[in-house]
Amino acid sequence: MSLGLISVVERDFVERGVDLDLRTDGRGRNDYRLPRMEMNLVAQSDGSARCQLGGSTDVLVSIRCELGQPEPTTGDRGRLAVSVECAPSASQQLEGRGADELNTELAEALSRALTGPRSGLNLRQLCIVENMHCWILNIDAIVLDLGGNVLDALLYAARAALADTRVPGTQVQSLDEGVDFEVDDDINHAAWLEHASNVPLCVTAYKIGAGYVLDATLTEELCSSARLHVSVNPAGQVCAAQKNGYGSIEPSLLITMLQAAKEKAMYLLEVQEEQIQQHKRTLLEKQTRGESVKRPSIFM
C-alpha cells in the first residue's frame, strides 16, 4: 500500500465527516474502540503487557529491573529508563532509518508521562542502599504493528506492565567496611510495584479540519494537522500534555480537545483497572488449581 499519501478529496471527505460527527467507520468523534490487553507475556521480564488498539496497532512493553546507581541528586530513589523501538517489521515507512525520528519522539513522550513529577510510582521502593545502589526499571517497548494512535497504546501497555511488575527482594547486610546486599531470586519474595495504579494513561486528540477525533485510524492520522497527547492519572490530573504535528490549534479548540481526552482517559483508566483485576484473578485461580500459568505462545 502506498504509505503517507492521500488525495485532496479523501481528506475533504474525512474532514467533513468529522464536522458531521460521523466518521468513515461510523463512529462519532469521541468513540474509542475498546483496547485489548494481555499481561505477563514475556518470561524473561519482571513485568510485561501487550496492547492492541482498533485491531491493528499492536505494542509490547517489557519491564526489567536492573541494578544500578541512583542519580547523585536523588540518592534515595530508583530510576526509570524508557526506550521505544518501532520494529522495522511494523510498517514499511520504517525501513532504513525511517524509524529513528519516530522512536525518539515516542520514547520522549512516554518518559515524559511516566517519569514526570508525581507520575505516581513510589521510586523510593527501588532504593536498595541509599546513594549507592538502586533498581533501574528498564521500560522497553516495541511497536509490532503501526496502525495509528501508537502513543495511547504504548502508555496503555506500559501502565499494565507496571501493574504486572515485581521488584526482586534484597537483603542488606552491614559489614565492617560499608554495606553489602544480596538479591533474592525467589519470585515469591518479590514485591509488587507500589502505587502502580497511580500511573497515567494517555489519550490523543487529533485535530482534523476544524474539529477533532479520538482514537484515530491511520487514514484519519494522515488527515490530521495537529494532535494533542494528554496523559491523565486516576486522580483526574493532567500529568503531561504535548502538541504534535505541523499545524496549530485555536485556544478554545485546545481546551475542548484537552477536556474530551481527559474524560476519555478517566473512562479508560476504569476499563483498564477492571482488565488488570480480571487478569490477576484468573492468575490466582490457575495457581490455586495448580495449573500452568504460562501460555503456549504470546499470540494465543
Partner: peptide, 20 residues
C-alpha cells in the same frame, strides 16, 4: 476537479456500513 459533492448524514452512514 478535486471537489467533493455534498454528502449527507444518511449517505455517510451507508458508506461506513459498507466499509465495515
Amino acid at each position: 476537479a478535486d471537489v467533493n459533492e455534498e454528502i449527507g448524514q444518511q449517505e455517510r452512514d451507508t458508506i461506513a456500513r459498507i466499509c465495515n
